[in-house]
Design a protein around this nucleic acid. Structure first.
Length: 310
DNA sequence: GGCCAGGGGATTA
DNA sequence: TAATCCCATGGC
């Protein structure tokens, strides 16, 4: 059995790989459940409160969180034949484990008492690095929709058009459909998934990405937020909200601050900004939270949606 | 049966 | 640039 250790990130996180599973330990400021259930992603299934199974790219994995006091370790069990040498780096990046969230949270709370309570509720949230194409389509589907239905629609889409990844943990798994796979579908093909009027949006998006080239979308991660926003909004069915979600969760733009009905509600509560005044909310976000305001958005969103559940 | 769900497009004025 | 309506769908 091969065991090796890797150190990186400067946060004292170490990891070792045993057979087909990997353990990353010494992780702080992280909650697997909060990160996977704060509404930013739609393809993870809870097994229990410490364990989730899902698909990222062509990787099928079971993630298990093992708390140890203030810290914890993450066990990653991946489908055997999908292992590759860069798995470790892949999961670190996907889960954003090498960012100092403690420092970011302290910055958000400086001179902002209300934010301390907001962050206390979702203190383990990390903003993921998801696939940009999957994020774009997922958030088009999310419009005027509920999270359980969004998940069901995406699962249906993957089963319909995604590459089969084989069986693992007792079920068959599918990759998220590539633009090419989705572009060949018709509205009739999609009708069993019940996307409603959103089916046309995702088909047109697939065709546009086929025409423009996927790199045109991926390059938005390196471009300015203004340029990325402009390109994303050129997709039919993509407005500012969906564009900002794609930028934040898929393209790594941590300064994106998506404003939905919940965020408008919480920004009104905290800063007394009128709910239709998006410009004032964006200015306030930039001033209060700076370049990482997208991360602040996630704490705020989690807090307001959790508080309404009770 | 009306209202809402992490919106966006098209049409008005 | 706002405001309004419509776009399907399902849960409550």
């Amino acid at each position: 059995m091969e065991v090796y250790k890797v150190e990186s990130g400067g946060l004292g996180i170490k990891s070792k790989i045993k057979e087909k599973q990997m353990i990353i330990d010494g992780i702080q400021d992280f909650s697997l459940a909060q990160t996977l259930e704060c509404g930013q992603c739609f393809r993870w299934e809870a097994q229990d409160s410490f364990s989730y199974i899902g698909v990222v790219g062509h990787r099928v994995a079971k993630l298990t969180w093992e708390p140890e006091g203030e810290q914890g370790s993450l066990r990653i069990q991946q489908m055997a034949h999908e292992s590759s040498p860069d798995d470790e780096a892949f999961w670190r990046y996907y889960l954003d484990l090498d960012r100092d969230y403690g420092k970011i949270k302290r910055k958000f709370c400086r001179g902002n008492q209300a934010m301390k309570e907001v962050i206390r509720v979702g203190q383990g949230i990390h903003v993921l690095h998801q696939d940009p194409w999957e994020a774009l389509i997922s958030f088009i589907i999310s419009q005027n929709n509920h999270i359980p239905r969004i998940k069901a629609s995406i699962q249906g889409l993957c089963q319909l058009a995604g590459t089969p990844l084989g069986e693992a943990f007792g079920s068959p798994w599918y990759a998220f459909p590539e633009p090419r796979q989705m572009a060949s579908l018709t509205r009739e093909d999609l009708s069993p998934i019940r996307l409603g009027y959103r089916d046309e949006y995702i088909l047109r998006a697939a065709k546009k990405v086929e025409e423009d080239g996927i790199d045109r979308l991926l390059e938005c991660g390196q471009k300015s937020p203004e340029e990325a926003l402009q390109y994303l909004c050129s997709f039919h069915g993509v407005g500012k909200k969906v564009a900002h979600c794609t930028m934040l969760y898929g393209l790594g733009h941590r300064s994106s601050f998506p404003l939905d009905v919940w965020m408008k509600r919480v920004m009104h509560q905290m800063y007394h900004i009128e709910e239709q005044d998006e410009g004032a909310m964006e200015e306030m976000a930039a001033r209060q939270y700076g370049v990482d305001c997208g991360i602040a958005q996630q704490y705020l969103f989690y807090h307001i949606t959790q508080s309404k559940k009770k």
